[in-house]
Design a protein around this nucleic acid. Structure first.
Length: 260
DNA sequence: ATGCCCGAGAACCTCGGA
């Protein structure tokens, strides 16, 4: 089973890149973030025409998350449990493998937070607290759980191109890294880092100042696997191909492959 | 210096992103 996560920064603008990527890579489940469109505008037919099913929760202008899957997913949830929030940042569903194993997949667009002294950071902390509770429950219910998405936190200095410049800043602060560690203490593992110990590997690069060409990036898009799924993971990689295209998203896909 | 670029929505600028 191949799972991928990609913050597309407007599905309207990136649709052709996404359908091309699906055709070329044939994942079982592609998890999208930052759709920036309403459910009425979602391009179901474009995905259907290349053999993919869609589940999504969107809103005008901001946020929005979706599953694009080779087979229908079940047990859909589009709200972070126990958190009343109009922002469309959470979607979860079950994938049934060819062997009949059920995999719980949770796809998130975590809050940015803006800065540590912002009201938006209070919201980020609260949102992560609720996500942690939900993941604890999910992993107990089904040990075969994968949490993917744009976390808007670098796990460590190795995931930041310039730790001195970013020290204490949003995405790279100690408090955010503790929040991520607490979430992962529910039994989740950084799948890319398991296979790749080297630095200078990122999933996001600023549009400004030719950030991609200089490889000035952050690794904030993660695939977190439960221990049961870590026992089945074959490989995990970042695919920089879409970041080199004209009019790219500022993020690029992260992919993991499992034997299930 | 909190900008440089980008997308969306309402106008030709502001907001939010990371």
């Amino acid at each position: 089973m191949k799972i991928a996560s990609w913050n597309v920064n407007s599905l309207r603008v990136r649709l052709e890149q996404v359908t091309d990527w699906l055709t070329n890579n044939q994942p079982d489940v592609l998890c999208l973030q930052e759709l920036k469109m309403t459910d009425e505008e979602f391009p179901i037919e474009a995905f259907k025409s290349i053999g993919y099913h869609s589940l999504f929760t969107g809103q005008k202008t901001y946020n929005g998350v979706a599953f694009i899957s080779s087979r229908p997913l079940t047990n859909l949830i589009t709200d972070l449990p126990n958190f009343d929030d109009p922002m469309r940042r959470y979607i979860a569903a079950d994938f049934k493998s060819e062997k009949g194993e059920i995999i719980r997949i949770v796809n998130v667009y975590c809050p940015n937070g803006q800065s540590l002294d912002s009201d938006k950071f209070v919201y980020k902390r609260e949102w992560f607290r609720k996500l942690q509770d939900a993941m604890g429950t999910d992993i107990k219910t089904n040990p075969n759980t994968v949490l993917v998405g744009d976390f808007n936190i670098t796990p460590g200095d190795i995931d930041c191109h310039d730790p001195l410049k970013w020290a204490g800043k949003i995405h790279c602060s100690d408090i955010e890294r503790l929040i991520l560690q607490k979430l992962m203490s529910e039994g989740l593992f950084d799948t890319f880092r398991h296979f790749h110990k080297e630095g200078d590997r990122y999933s996001w690069w600023d549009y400004r100042g030719a950030g991609y060409r200089a490889n000035e990036g952050l690794r904030i898009d993660l695939i977190l696997s439960s221990s049961a799924m870590m026992n089945k993971v074959q490989n995990c990689w970042i695919d920089e191909t879409p970041r080199k295209l004209d009019r790219p998203s500022d993020h690029t896909p992260v992919v993991a492959e499992y034997t299930v």
